[in-house]
Design a binder for these strands. Structure first.
Lengths: 204, 204
DNA sequence: GTTCCATGTTAGAACCTCTCACATAAAGTG
DNA sequence: CACTTTATGTGAGAGGTTCTAACATGGAAC
Protein backbone atom coordinates (compact mmCIF):
# COMPACT_ATOMS: atom_id res chain seq x y z
CA UNK A 1 0.00 0.00 0.00
CA UNK A 2 2.85 2.29 0.81
CA UNK A 3 5.04 1.67 -2.22
CA UNK A 4 2.43 2.56 -4.79
CA UNK A 5 4.28 3.94 -7.79
CA UNK A 6 2.79 5.87 -10.64
CA UNK A 7 3.26 4.44 -14.14
CA UNK A 8 5.92 7.01 -14.89
CA UNK A 9 8.09 5.51 -12.16
CA UNK A 10 7.63 1.87 -13.13
CA UNK A 11 10.78 1.93 -15.25
CA UNK A 12 12.87 0.24 -12.53
CA UNK A 13 15.07 3.33 -12.15
CA UNK A 14 14.64 5.42 -9.07
CA UNK A 15 14.40 8.96 -10.40
CA UNK A 16 15.64 12.00 -8.59
CA UNK A 17 12.12 13.28 -8.21
CA UNK A 18 9.60 10.98 -6.62
CA UNK A 19 6.55 11.98 -8.62
CA UNK A 20 3.99 11.96 -5.87
CA UNK A 21 5.93 12.18 -2.65
CA UNK A 22 3.29 14.05 -0.72
CA UNK A 23 0.81 11.24 -1.26
CA UNK A 24 3.41 8.57 -0.53
CA UNK A 25 4.36 10.29 2.72
CA UNK A 26 0.75 10.46 3.86
CA UNK A 27 0.36 6.75 3.17
CA UNK A 28 3.56 5.97 5.05
CA UNK A 29 2.53 8.22 7.94
CA UNK A 30 -0.89 6.56 8.05
CA UNK A 31 0.71 3.15 8.45
CA UNK A 32 3.16 4.37 11.08
CA UNK A 33 0.48 6.14 13.09
CA UNK A 34 -1.57 2.98 13.01
CA UNK A 35 1.23 0.67 14.08
CA UNK A 36 3.14 2.85 16.56
CA UNK A 37 0.63 5.54 17.50
CA UNK A 38 0.81 9.22 16.69
CA UNK A 39 2.97 9.88 19.75
CA UNK A 40 5.77 7.63 18.49
CA UNK A 41 5.47 8.61 14.87
CA UNK A 42 8.48 10.36 13.35
CA UNK A 43 8.85 12.31 10.13
CA UNK A 44 12.27 10.78 9.58
CA UNK A 45 10.85 7.27 9.64
CA UNK A 46 8.09 8.18 7.22
CA UNK A 47 10.77 9.56 4.90
CA UNK A 48 12.71 6.30 5.12
CA UNK A 49 9.61 4.28 4.30
CA UNK A 50 8.96 6.51 1.29
CA UNK A 51 12.59 6.11 0.24
CA UNK A 52 13.63 9.75 0.41
CA UNK A 53 16.00 11.76 2.56
CA UNK A 54 14.96 13.09 5.93
CA UNK A 55 14.72 16.64 4.63
CA UNK A 56 12.41 15.89 1.73
CA UNK A 57 9.13 15.84 3.70
CA UNK A 58 9.64 19.48 4.64
CA UNK A 59 9.08 20.47 1.00
CA UNK A 60 5.52 19.24 1.41
CA UNK A 61 4.71 19.81 5.07
CA UNK A 62 5.64 22.74 7.26
CA UNK A 63 6.35 20.52 10.22
CA UNK A 64 5.50 17.25 11.92
CA UNK A 65 2.11 18.47 13.07
CA UNK A 66 1.10 19.49 9.57
CA UNK A 67 2.00 16.02 8.34
CA UNK A 68 -0.20 14.44 11.00
CA UNK A 69 -2.91 16.92 10.14
CA UNK A 70 -2.82 15.65 6.56
CA UNK A 71 -3.29 12.09 7.80
CA UNK A 72 -6.25 13.22 9.89
CA UNK A 73 -7.79 15.08 6.98
CA UNK A 74 -7.42 12.03 4.77
CA UNK A 75 -9.09 9.94 7.45
CA UNK A 76 -12.01 12.34 7.82
CA UNK A 77 -12.56 12.35 4.09
CA UNK A 78 -12.59 8.57 4.00
CA UNK A 79 -14.99 8.54 6.94
CA UNK A 80 -17.37 10.87 5.09
CA UNK A 81 -17.26 8.53 2.11
CA UNK A 82 -18.10 5.59 4.35
CA UNK A 83 -21.08 7.48 5.72
CA UNK A 84 -22.43 7.87 2.20
CA UNK A 85 -22.03 4.19 1.42
CA UNK A 86 -23.49 3.12 4.77
CA UNK A 87 -26.61 5.28 4.64
CA UNK A 88 -27.25 4.84 0.93
CA UNK A 89 -29.41 1.69 1.12
CA UNK A 90 -31.84 3.31 3.57
CA UNK A 91 -34.39 6.02 3.33
CA UNK A 92 -33.18 9.54 4.08
CA UNK A 93 -33.90 10.39 7.69
CA UNK A 94 -34.85 6.85 8.70
CA UNK A 95 -33.63 5.40 11.99
CA UNK A 96 -31.90 2.73 9.88
CA UNK A 97 -29.91 5.32 7.96
CA UNK A 98 -28.92 7.16 11.12
CA UNK A 99 -27.95 3.93 12.84
CA UNK A 100 -25.92 2.90 9.79
CA UNK A 101 -23.90 6.10 10.03
CA UNK A 102 -23.26 5.39 13.69
CA UNK A 103 -22.11 1.87 12.94
CA UNK A 104 -19.82 3.15 10.19
CA UNK A 105 -18.33 5.56 12.72
CA UNK A 106 -17.62 2.82 15.24
CA UNK A 107 -16.35 0.47 12.53
CA UNK A 108 -13.87 3.07 11.35
CA UNK A 109 -12.62 3.53 14.89
CA UNK A 110 -12.16 -0.21 15.33
CA UNK A 111 -10.47 -0.66 11.94
CA UNK A 112 -8.06 2.26 12.28
CA UNK A 113 -7.88 3.30 15.91
CA UNK A 114 -4.59 5.13 15.51
CA UNK A 115 -5.87 7.39 12.76
CA UNK A 116 -9.22 7.73 14.50
CA UNK A 117 -7.57 9.03 17.66
CA UNK A 118 -5.57 11.42 15.57
CA UNK A 119 -8.72 12.65 13.84
CA UNK A 120 -10.67 13.32 17.00
CA UNK A 121 -8.37 13.75 19.94
CA UNK A 122 -4.64 13.93 19.41
CA UNK A 123 -4.51 16.84 17.03
CA UNK A 124 -4.28 20.37 18.33
CA UNK A 125 -4.61 23.32 15.98
CA UNK A 126 -5.89 21.48 12.97
CA UNK A 127 -5.98 23.18 9.59
CA UNK A 128 -9.04 24.76 8.02
CA UNK A 129 -9.23 21.99 5.45
CA UNK A 130 -9.23 19.35 8.16
CA UNK A 131 -11.97 21.20 10.02
CA UNK A 132 -13.96 21.33 6.80
CA UNK A 133 -13.54 17.59 6.31
CA UNK A 134 -14.87 17.08 9.82
CA UNK A 135 -17.77 19.39 9.14
CA UNK A 136 -18.63 17.37 6.04
CA UNK A 137 -18.97 14.26 8.21
CA UNK A 138 -21.13 16.14 10.69
CA UNK A 139 -23.33 17.52 7.93
CA UNK A 140 -24.35 14.09 6.78
CA UNK A 141 -25.59 13.18 10.22
CA UNK A 142 -27.39 16.52 10.50
CA UNK A 143 -29.05 16.03 7.12
CA UNK A 144 -30.48 12.67 8.13
CA UNK A 145 -31.53 13.83 11.59
CA UNK A 146 -33.16 16.91 10.08
CA UNK A 147 -35.07 14.74 7.64
CA UNK A 148 -36.05 12.44 10.48
CA UNK A 149 -37.54 15.37 12.36
CA UNK A 150 -39.30 16.57 9.22
CA UNK A 151 -37.36 19.81 9.10
CA UNK A 152 -36.40 21.24 5.73
CA UNK A 153 -33.62 23.39 7.14
CA UNK A 154 -30.95 22.48 9.66
CA UNK A 155 -31.51 24.59 12.75
CA UNK A 156 -30.99 24.45 16.46
CA UNK A 157 -33.55 21.69 16.94
CA UNK A 158 -31.66 19.47 14.52
CA UNK A 159 -28.37 20.20 16.22
CA UNK A 160 -29.85 19.49 19.63
CA UNK A 161 -31.26 16.17 18.47
CA UNK A 162 -28.09 15.11 16.64
CA UNK A 163 -25.70 16.03 19.41
CA UNK A 164 -26.54 13.21 21.82
CA UNK A 165 -26.39 10.72 18.96
CA UNK A 166 -22.96 11.86 17.96
CA UNK A 167 -21.66 11.85 21.52
CA UNK A 168 -23.04 8.34 21.81
CA UNK A 169 -21.09 6.81 18.95
CA UNK A 170 -18.09 8.98 19.71
CA UNK A 171 -18.03 7.71 23.25
CA UNK A 172 -18.57 4.11 22.25
CA UNK A 173 -15.77 4.33 19.72
CA UNK A 174 -13.22 5.68 22.15
CA UNK A 175 -14.15 3.36 24.97
CA UNK A 176 -13.85 0.39 22.64
CA UNK A 177 -10.52 1.23 21.04
CA UNK A 178 -9.09 2.15 24.41
CA UNK A 179 -10.14 -1.20 25.79
CA UNK A 180 -12.23 0.47 28.48
CA UNK A 181 -15.07 -1.89 27.73
CA UNK A 182 -14.79 -5.61 27.00
CA UNK A 183 -15.49 -5.80 23.29
CA UNK A 184 -16.65 -9.41 23.33
CA UNK A 185 -19.68 -8.70 25.45
CA UNK A 186 -21.15 -6.16 23.08
CA UNK A 187 -19.46 -6.62 19.75
CA UNK A 188 -22.25 -8.72 18.37
CA UNK A 189 -25.24 -6.75 19.64
CA UNK A 190 -23.53 -3.41 19.01
CA UNK A 191 -25.82 -2.61 16.12
CA UNK A 192 -28.83 -3.47 18.26
CA UNK A 193 -27.59 -1.28 21.08
CA UNK A 194 -26.95 1.60 18.71
CA UNK A 195 -30.33 1.30 17.08
CA UNK A 196 -32.01 1.05 20.49
CA UNK A 197 -30.21 4.10 21.84
CA UNK A 198 -30.87 6.03 18.67
CA UNK A 199 -34.60 5.39 19.03
CA UNK A 200 -34.61 6.39 22.68
CA UNK A 201 -32.68 9.58 22.10
CA UNK A 202 -34.79 10.57 19.11
CA UNK A 203 -38.12 9.83 20.77
CA UNK A 204 -40.25 12.89 21.50
CA UNK B 1 1.75 24.94 42.35
CA UNK B 2 4.81 23.40 40.86
CA UNK B 3 7.41 24.78 43.22
CA UNK B 4 5.81 23.35 46.33
CA UNK B 5 8.60 22.71 48.78
CA UNK B 6 8.38 20.56 51.83
CA UNK B 7 9.23 22.16 55.18
CA UNK B 8 12.61 20.45 55.20
CA UNK B 9 13.56 22.42 52.08
CA UNK B 10 12.35 25.81 53.30
CA UNK B 11 15.82 26.62 54.65
CA UNK B 12 16.71 28.71 51.57
CA UNK B 13 19.49 26.29 50.62
CA UNK B 14 18.91 24.01 47.66
CA UNK B 15 19.93 20.59 48.89
CA UNK B 16 21.50 17.93 46.74
CA UNK B 17 18.50 15.70 47.22
CA UNK B 18 15.15 17.14 46.35
CA UNK B 19 13.08 15.41 48.95
CA UNK B 20 10.03 14.55 46.89
CA UNK B 21 11.16 14.76 43.31
CA UNK B 22 8.76 12.16 42.01
CA UNK B 23 5.80 14.17 43.20
CA UNK B 24 7.29 17.44 41.94
CA UNK B 25 7.89 15.92 38.52
CA UNK B 26 4.31 14.71 38.27
CA UNK B 27 3.08 18.21 39.13
CA UNK B 28 5.40 19.77 36.57
CA UNK B 29 4.38 17.23 33.95
CA UNK B 30 0.71 17.85 34.70
CA UNK B 31 1.14 21.57 34.04
CA UNK B 32 3.14 20.98 30.87
CA UNK B 33 0.68 18.46 29.50
CA UNK B 34 -2.09 20.92 30.16
CA UNK B 35 -0.39 23.89 28.53
CA UNK B 36 1.41 22.23 25.61
CA UNK B 37 -0.39 18.94 25.19
CA UNK B 38 1.00 15.48 25.82
CA UNK B 39 2.47 15.34 22.32
CA UNK B 40 4.74 18.31 22.95
CA UNK B 41 5.59 17.41 26.51
CA UNK B 42 9.23 16.62 27.21
CA UNK B 43 10.88 14.98 30.19
CA UNK B 44 13.76 17.44 29.94
CA UNK B 45 11.46 20.39 30.35
CA UNK B 46 9.69 18.84 33.33
CA UNK B 47 13.11 18.35 34.89
CA UNK B 48 13.97 22.01 34.31
CA UNK B 49 10.69 23.11 35.91
CA UNK B 50 11.40 20.91 38.90
CA UNK B 51 14.91 22.36 39.09
CA UNK B 52 16.87 19.16 38.58
CA UNK B 53 19.14 17.82 35.87
CA UNK B 54 17.77 16.07 32.80
CA UNK B 55 18.87 12.68 34.02
CA UNK B 56 17.19 12.85 37.39
CA UNK B 57 13.67 11.89 36.26
CA UNK B 58 14.93 8.51 35.12
CA UNK B 59 15.55 7.55 38.72
CA UNK B 60 11.79 7.71 39.23
CA UNK B 61 10.33 6.79 35.83
CA UNK B 62 11.49 4.17 33.38
CA UNK B 63 10.83 6.39 30.41
CA UNK B 64 8.72 9.26 29.09
CA UNK B 65 5.63 7.08 28.73
CA UNK B 66 5.81 5.94 32.33
CA UNK B 67 5.97 9.57 33.41
CA UNK B 68 2.86 10.38 31.41
CA UNK B 69 1.22 7.29 32.80
CA UNK B 70 1.81 8.64 36.30
CA UNK B 71 0.09 11.89 35.33
CA UNK B 72 -2.87 9.92 33.96
CA UNK B 73 -3.09 7.80 37.09
CA UNK B 74 -3.07 10.90 39.25
CA UNK B 75 -5.84 12.36 37.11
CA UNK B 76 -7.97 9.25 37.36
CA UNK B 77 -7.61 9.21 41.13
CA UNK B 78 -8.65 12.84 41.35
CA UNK B 79 -11.59 12.11 39.06
CA UNK B 80 -12.74 9.29 41.33
CA UNK B 81 -12.57 11.67 44.27
CA UNK B 82 -14.68 14.19 42.40
CA UNK B 83 -17.27 11.52 41.72
CA UNK B 84 -17.59 10.88 45.44
CA UNK B 85 -18.06 14.56 46.21
CA UNK B 86 -20.50 15.08 43.35
CA UNK B 87 -22.79 12.17 44.14
CA UNK B 88 -22.64 12.53 47.91
CA UNK B 89 -25.57 14.97 48.34
CA UNK B 90 -27.95 12.67 46.47
CA UNK B 91 -29.54 9.37 47.21
CA UNK B 92 -27.62 6.30 46.08
CA UNK B 93 -28.93 5.18 42.71
CA UNK B 94 -30.99 8.28 42.08
CA UNK B 95 -31.04 9.89 38.66
CA UNK B 96 -29.65 13.00 40.37
CA UNK B 97 -26.64 11.12 41.69
CA UNK B 98 -25.96 9.51 38.32
CA UNK B 99 -26.33 12.82 36.53
CA UNK B 100 -24.00 14.47 39.04
CA UNK B 101 -21.32 11.94 38.23
CA UNK B 102 -21.77 12.67 34.56
CA UNK B 103 -21.48 16.39 35.13
CA UNK B 104 -18.35 15.87 37.23
CA UNK B 105 -16.89 13.88 34.33
CA UNK B 106 -17.56 16.63 31.80
CA UNK B 107 -16.40 19.32 34.21
CA UNK B 108 -13.10 17.55 34.69
CA UNK B 109 -12.63 17.33 30.94
CA UNK B 110 -13.32 21.03 30.54
CA UNK B 111 -11.09 22.02 33.44
CA UNK B 112 -8.12 19.87 32.45
CA UNK B 113 -8.53 18.81 28.83
CA UNK B 114 -4.86 17.95 28.38
CA UNK B 115 -4.79 15.53 31.27
CA UNK B 116 -8.24 14.23 30.37
CA UNK B 117 -7.09 13.32 26.87
CA UNK B 118 -4.07 11.65 28.35
CA UNK B 119 -6.25 9.66 30.74
CA UNK B 120 -8.63 8.35 28.12
CA UNK B 121 -7.07 8.47 24.70
CA UNK B 122 -3.43 9.33 24.30
CA UNK B 123 -1.95 6.68 26.48
CA UNK B 124 -1.03 3.32 25.06
CA UNK B 125 0.01 0.45 27.31
CA UNK B 126 -1.00 1.97 30.61
CA UNK B 127 0.19 0.45 33.86
CA UNK B 128 -1.84 -1.87 36.05
CA UNK B 129 -2.18 0.82 38.68
CA UNK B 130 -3.54 3.26 36.14
CA UNK B 131 -6.02 0.67 34.92
CA UNK B 132 -7.10 0.12 38.51
CA UNK B 133 -7.61 3.84 39.02
CA UNK B 134 -9.82 3.85 35.93
CA UNK B 135 -11.75 0.86 37.22
CA UNK B 136 -12.37 2.67 40.49
CA UNK B 137 -14.05 5.48 38.57
CA UNK B 138 -16.13 3.01 36.60
CA UNK B 139 -17.16 1.18 39.75
CA UNK B 140 -18.77 4.26 41.23
CA UNK B 141 -21.00 4.66 38.21
CA UNK B 142 -21.83 0.96 38.24
CA UNK B 143 -22.71 1.09 41.93
CA UNK B 144 -25.22 3.88 41.41
CA UNK B 145 -26.69 2.37 38.26
CA UNK B 146 -27.02 -0.98 40.00
CA UNK B 147 -28.82 0.69 42.89
CA UNK B 148 -31.04 2.52 40.45
CA UNK B 149 -32.05 -0.77 38.87
CA UNK B 150 -32.64 -2.30 42.29
CA UNK B 151 -29.94 -4.90 41.86
CA UNK B 152 -27.85 -5.87 44.85
CA UNK B 153 -25.00 -7.23 42.75
CA UNK B 154 -23.34 -5.71 39.70
CA UNK B 155 -24.03 -8.00 36.78
CA UNK B 156 -24.45 -7.85 33.04
CA UNK B 157 -27.71 -5.90 33.28
CA UNK B 158 -25.97 -3.18 35.27
CA UNK B 159 -23.11 -3.06 32.82
CA UNK B 160 -25.47 -2.87 29.87
CA UNK B 161 -27.41 -0.02 31.44
CA UNK B 162 -24.32 1.90 32.50
CA UNK B 163 -22.49 1.57 29.23
CA UNK B 164 -24.61 3.99 27.17
CA UNK B 165 -24.48 6.51 30.00
CA UNK B 166 -20.73 6.40 30.12
CA UNK B 167 -20.34 6.64 26.37
CA UNK B 168 -22.65 9.62 26.52
CA UNK B 169 -20.60 11.72 28.89
CA UNK B 170 -17.38 10.42 27.38
CA UNK B 171 -18.48 11.55 23.96
CA UNK B 172 -19.75 14.90 25.20
CA UNK B 173 -16.48 15.52 26.98
CA UNK B 174 -14.31 14.84 23.97
CA UNK B 175 -16.45 16.74 21.53
CA UNK B 176 -16.45 19.74 23.81
CA UNK B 177 -12.74 19.90 24.56
CA UNK B 178 -11.96 19.31 20.91
CA UNK B 179 -14.19 22.19 19.92
CA UNK B 180 -16.28 19.92 17.75
CA UNK B 181 -19.39 21.43 19.23
CA UNK B 182 -19.97 25.10 19.98
CA UNK B 183 -19.79 25.27 23.74
CA UNK B 184 -21.84 28.43 24.09
CA UNK B 185 -24.98 26.83 22.75
CA UNK B 186 -25.10 24.08 25.32
CA UNK B 187 -22.87 25.09 28.15
CA UNK B 188 -25.73 26.35 30.25
CA UNK B 189 -28.29 23.61 29.61
CA UNK B 190 -25.65 20.88 29.73
CA UNK B 191 -26.90 19.59 33.05
CA UNK B 192 -30.44 19.52 31.71
CA UNK B 193 -29.34 17.66 28.61
CA UNK B 194 -27.40 15.15 30.67
CA UNK B 195 -30.27 14.56 33.02
CA UNK B 196 -32.70 14.23 30.12
CA UNK B 197 -30.50 11.74 28.28
CA UNK B 198 -29.87 9.81 31.47
CA UNK B 199 -33.61 9.39 32.00
CA UNK B 200 -34.20 8.32 28.42
CA UNK B 201 -31.39 5.79 28.41
CA UNK B 202 -32.40 4.37 31.78
CA UNK B 203 -36.11 4.11 30.96
CA UNK B 204 -37.42 0.57 30.65
C1' DG C 1 31.60 6.03 62.76
C1' DT C 2 31.58 3.56 58.74
C1' DT C 3 29.16 1.61 55.10
C1' DC C 4 25.39 1.33 52.05
C1' DC C 5 22.43 2.89 48.74
C1' DA C 6 18.76 5.89 47.04
C1' DT C 7 18.95 9.74 44.46
C1' DG C 8 21.32 13.37 42.55
C1' DT C 9 25.00 15.19 38.51
C1' DT C 10 27.58 15.31 34.20
C1' DA C 11 28.84 13.48 29.75
C1' DG C 12 27.55 11.40 25.78
C1' DA C 13 25.43 8.25 22.09
C1' DA C 14 21.67 7.91 19.18
C1' DC C 15 17.80 9.98 17.39
C1' DC C 16 14.72 13.60 16.00
C1' DT C 17 13.01 18.18 14.01
C1' DC C 18 13.86 21.56 11.04
C1' DT C 19 16.95 24.74 8.11
C1' DC C 20 20.03 25.99 4.54
C1' DA C 21 22.99 25.73 0.67
C1' DC C 22 23.29 23.06 -3.21
C1' DA C 23 21.71 19.58 -7.02
C1' DT C 24 18.53 18.14 -10.44
C1' DA C 25 14.94 17.87 -13.66
C1' DA C 26 10.64 19.49 -15.35
C1' DA C 27 8.12 23.47 -17.07
C1' DG C 28 7.83 27.94 -18.96
C1' DT C 29 9.93 31.63 -22.31
C1' DG C 30 11.99 33.98 -26.06
C1' DC D 1 15.74 24.88 -29.37
C1' DA D 2 18.76 27.17 -25.74
C1' DC D 3 17.92 29.42 -21.43
C1' DT D 4 15.92 30.54 -17.29
C1' DT D 5 12.87 29.66 -13.63
C1' DT D 6 10.80 26.86 -10.30
C1' DA D 7 9.60 22.74 -7.82
C1' DT D 8 11.51 19.13 -5.45
C1' DG D 9 15.18 16.28 -3.78
C1' DT D 10 20.04 15.75 -1.20
C1' DG D 11 23.52 16.38 2.46
C1' DA D 12 25.32 18.61 6.24
C1' DG D 13 24.45 20.45 10.51
C1' DA D 14 22.49 23.10 14.71
C1' DG D 15 19.97 22.33 18.55
C1' DG D 16 16.77 19.67 21.27
C1' DT D 17 15.34 15.06 22.99
C1' DT D 18 15.45 10.32 25.18
C1' DC D 19 17.90 7.43 27.80
C1' DT D 20 22.32 5.30 29.72
C1' DA D 21 26.48 5.08 32.37
C1' DA D 22 29.97 6.48 35.47
C1' DC D 23 30.50 9.29 39.25
C1' DA D 24 28.93 12.29 43.53
C1' DT D 25 26.40 13.09 47.72
C1' DG D 26 24.33 12.67 52.00
C1' DG D 27 20.73 10.34 54.89
C1' DA D 28 19.80 5.82 56.96
C1' DA D 29 21.29 1.35 58.75
C1' DC D 30 24.57 -1.26 61.12
Amino acid sequence: MVETLSDAQMTEKKPYHHGDLRHALIEAAKDLVETKGAAHFSVAQAARVAGVSSGAPYRHFKDRDEMLDAVAKDGLQRLAQRFVVAADPFEEGSVEAITAIGIAYVDFAKAQPGVFRLMFAELRSESDETCAAGEACKMQLLRHVGAHLGHDTIGDATHDAAFPLWTMVHGISFLMIDGKVPAEELDVPLDKMLSDCTRRLLAR
